[in-house]
């Protein structure tokens, strides 16, 4: 039997009802998705069934996980944050500027850390051999960028608006347009891989991946804000997206950080 969107819609609704019930019974807000979110079928065999073993980072300042690998100017080239200038010609699509701050849970800027992004082209196609979507490749767009956050924790990318794309989990499954982000903090415990979405996408209710974040406010934090002050005259539309790294870090602050 073909899995349909209405099958998935029912499962998404059931997961939301279960979360609402947990909340009504006094359970804490869930800022993160659960790893066993069945409406996203790929999670079914790829999540642990045993609870994680908890490590209190306050007990040992020497934990390897309380430090993070270093990245520097050697690891990025000057045009790495401009995805429209990686080839000889101009990519097709609406140019956008995406910028925001990388913060820790105390609201402090996370400086000098690596931000990596990847995305589909404006037609919704990834430059990836396993991609089966029958939409045109753009010879002038690979959809990959990286940068280091500045002294105020800001990152900034120039790219093109990615298109939505079908992904075959169920009949008529479409991913809302998004940009994948990979982020490092000052501690390895703060590592984050996530996706940024665009305001008011009509596909949000149908997509089990964004809906895996069942808390409404938490899900909203994945959606960028249109920011006219970031729009570059005669060039690009601007989007602002701040990122807060979860996970504990060392309670002492290193010199110069």
């Amino acid at each position: 039997m073909t899995l349909t969107q209405s099958d998935i819609d029912r499962e998404i609704a059931a997961e939301r009802a279960a979360y609402d019930k947990r909340r009504a019974e006094g359970a804490p807000v869930e800022h993160q998705p659960r790893r066993d979110y069945a409406p996203y079928r790929s999670s079914v065999l790829r999540h642990p069934t045993r609870p994680p073993v908890t490590i209190d980072v306050g007990t040992d300042p020497e934990l390897v996980e309380l430090a993070s690998p270093a990245f520097g100017e050697r690891d990025v080239t000057e045009t790495d944050n401009d995805l429209t200038r990686r080839h000889d010609g101009e990519p097709i699509g609406e140019r956008i500027t995406v910028s925001g701050r990388l913060l820790d849970r105390d609201g402090r800027p996370v400086r000098g850390q690596l931000v990596e992004i990847w995305q589909a082209n404006s037609a919704g196609r990834y430059a990836h051999m396993r991609e089966q979507h029958d939409a045109p490749l753009d010879p002038n767009f690979t959809g990959v960028g990286r940068t280091l956050t500045d002294d105020s924790g800001f990152y900034r990318f120039t790219t093109v608006q990615p298109g939505p794309y079908p992904w075959r989990q169920h009949l008529n499954a479409w991913r809302p347009a998004h940009i994948h982000f990979s982020l490092f903090g000052t501690a390895f415990t703060q590592r984050l891989v996530t996706q940024m979405y665009f305001p008011s996408d009509p596909l949000f209710p149908y997509d089990p991946i964004i809906q895996s974040v069942t808390d409404d406010a938490a899900r909203q934090r994945l959606v960028a804000t249109y920011d006219h002050s970031l729009s570059v005259p005669e060039f690009s539309m601007g989007y602002h997206w701040d990122i807060v790294l979860d996970g504990p870090r060392a309670t002492w602050i290193e010199e110069g950080r």
């Binding site: 800022h31 998705p33 990596e116 990847w118 990959v144 990286r146 990979s182 991946i209 934090r221 807060v244």
Partner: peptide
């Protein structure tokens, strides 16, 4: 307002990026 950004899957298409 300083609340964590939720995680998402890395998906299948990170191959040119990471």
């Amino acid at each position: 307002t300083v609340l964590p950004t939720p995680s998402h899957t890395v998906g299948p298409f990170y191959g040119h990026a990471l």
